[in-house]
Design a protein around this nucleic acid. Structure first.
Lengths: 338, 338
DNA sequence: CTGAAAGCGCTTACAG
DNA sequence: CTGAAAGCGCTTACAG
């Protein structure tokens, strides 16, 4: 089943080499021959089979994006940037989801060894220094987004700075008891955000209280869910006295937190992290990660590296910008609309 | 570069056939031989190359999910269902994004011809009857989500019914001037939703006014964006008198619409469509599509079809359920919190 | 239990 | 400009 290069070679009365040449538009072919082949290929509905081409040419015209969870708003925005950037090129996009409850490293290594793609973008996958280093030996084109290693091109956000800025904003407003909604997993970004939060308190002479860092109990999506944020805020609302303000490590969690506050009829000024498209519309103050741009730049880096693997390694670190909207306002100022 | 089956055959002093057998765990192999091979394969870091395996075995252990836009909340939820269902199987997931500004059919056909996967799930891709029929000849395992054709397994939601129910709810509340926020594209679901909306008005003896169906000007993501919803609501807010209520064709658009109303200090009861995870948290009344379940069922269908292509064709049509939350309330009842 | 060999559908030097 | 042939890295009857 399926029609092959042999079928159309026979029909056109030429060799398969010639067919291959016209299909790929490589090498000189008499225009008459070319037309005949093209016509037949079209009529017979011929398309080269991806696997055979990949094997023979040793090129897979595919870019693989590797993520731990696909259904995540952060990835979605990064993916949008990758997609748009890639649409100017002939590569196909292949999104591969590695399972977060299994050995991430083994899965990543497996992908590299199986050589499924020409280049890889790893998003939010965190490995130790040695592990990243050991992946280097597959000498594949790889770009890391949301993690860092000196041997690979990478695109990052200065998480510590972002968290610092958010926390500092609250300090400047005169708040003392500043809580933080974290996430279950000790991923590098979360660790960095906690560092920034602590540093801001420290610089302001406010004593750090570990009880003020909370997370919900739901472990779905590593705690990056509305529900988890809702649970986390419930914990904060049970404190007496209430926190003066709250820094939340992700927008999606903040949506849950906002609901918990609304139900309780209480408003604690909140700044969160991400700046998803919806955040602007629901008035969420947040530390903006340029997600779309991150995907776009990562793709550029990858394309360049595929082109020339000797190219100097590039690292981009974005300094996130704080977007102040309603959610960080003082309780009084929004009480009229709450 | 890359180590192959030959390398480990040589090292283990066996034939490549034997190596293949132990790697794939097919056929009887003396346990001593097996162990030796396994050990070497592990040490030398061997993994079969996907392309070579695919060519030789004519099996690609990959499922392709084909979508017009990846960064879309509806797909994300459906994908979550697919992912989870697939995680019980050995297939790899491959998400392929076809470009909505090019010939969708040609792209779909291309994928089928290139034989990139063992089976395909097409999500929200709408073709005419003849086009679907013509895809049938590739005799690939295909499941359609969010469209329908008699020759393929499919998973759908009764859009007409959903829109009818939402509109009818407003009629029952005594509203007469009921607007609808639509989307740019004339996709089948939107057409069905408009039908349901009209039917509900008709059944209630309310005259249909085409000016009450609006959409925004932003064409990003075919109009399924916060911004477009915001623009659409602005148009409704410019009407005099204002509409009594509004049915919106998607949650993401409703988020924009909600903002427009808030800015104007006006509340028009709103019911929308989808029931994204966030909708519950922001109090959005909506017609719930069981997106996760749709992905899950579609995956089951596909797996069954791959297993047995003679299997009878299955169609599932969900009757969506209406979730009433704050956004559909009467203006008075929420004025205290607006 | 194991190996030699053909074949999967292409690409690509090498000749001519 | 075009063809014969080798080769990509596997799988899988077919023998033994």
């Amino acid at each position: 089943m399926g029609i092959t290069i042999y079928d159309i070679a026979k029909a056109a009365d030429v060799s398969i080499a010639t067919v291959s040449r016209v299909i790929n538009d490589t090498g000189r072919v008499r225009s008459k021959t070319r037309e005949k082949v093209l016509k037949l290929a079209d009529e017979m509905g011929y398309h080269p089979q991806a696997f055979a081409q990949g094997l023979a040419s040793k090129k897979k015209n595919t870019i693989a994006v590797v993520v731990p969870v696909i259904s995540n708003y952060f990835f979605m925005e990064v993916l949008a940037g990758i997609q748009d950037q890639l649409s100017n090129h002939e590569y196909e996009l292949n999104i591969i989801n590695i399972k977060s409850d299994e050995d991430l490293f083994a899965q990543a290594e497996h992908l590299l060894k199986r050589q499924v793609a020409e280049g890889y973008i790893f998003i939010s996958i965190h490995f130790s220094d040695e592990k990243w280093k050991s992946l280097k030996r597959y000498s594949k084109s790889i770009v890391i987004v949301d993690d860092w290693h000196k041997d690979f091109d990478s695109v990052n956000v200065d998480d510590k700075h972002g968290a610092y800025a958010a926390t500092k904003h609250f300090v400047d407003q005169g708040y003392k008891k500043i809580a933080m909604i974290s996430a279950l997993e000790n991923s590098k970004p979360i660790i960095k955000r906690i560092e920034g939060y602590k540093k801001a308190l420290e610089d302001s002479g406010i004593e750090f209280d570990e009880n003020l860092i909370v997370t919900g109990d739901s472990s779905y999506r590593d705690g990056f869910s509305e529900k988890n944020g809702y649970q986390a805020m419930k914990k904060l609302l049970a404190m007496d006295p209430l926190p003066d303000a709250c820094f939340s490590a992700s927008d999606i969690k903040s949506i849950g937190a906002l609901k918990a506050m609304k139900e309780a009829g209480v408003h604690i000024p909140l700044i969160s992290y991400d700046n998803l498209a919806i955040s602007e519309y629901i008035g969420l103050s947040t530390v903006a990660q340029p997600m779309y741009e991150m995907g776009s730049i990562a793709t550029e880096y990858l394309l360049e590296r595929i082109d020339n693997n000797d190219k100097k390694i590039s690292h981009t670190v974005y300094t996130p910008e704080i977007k102040l909207r309603e959610s960080s306002n003082k309780p009084e100022s929004i009480s009229s609309t709450e």
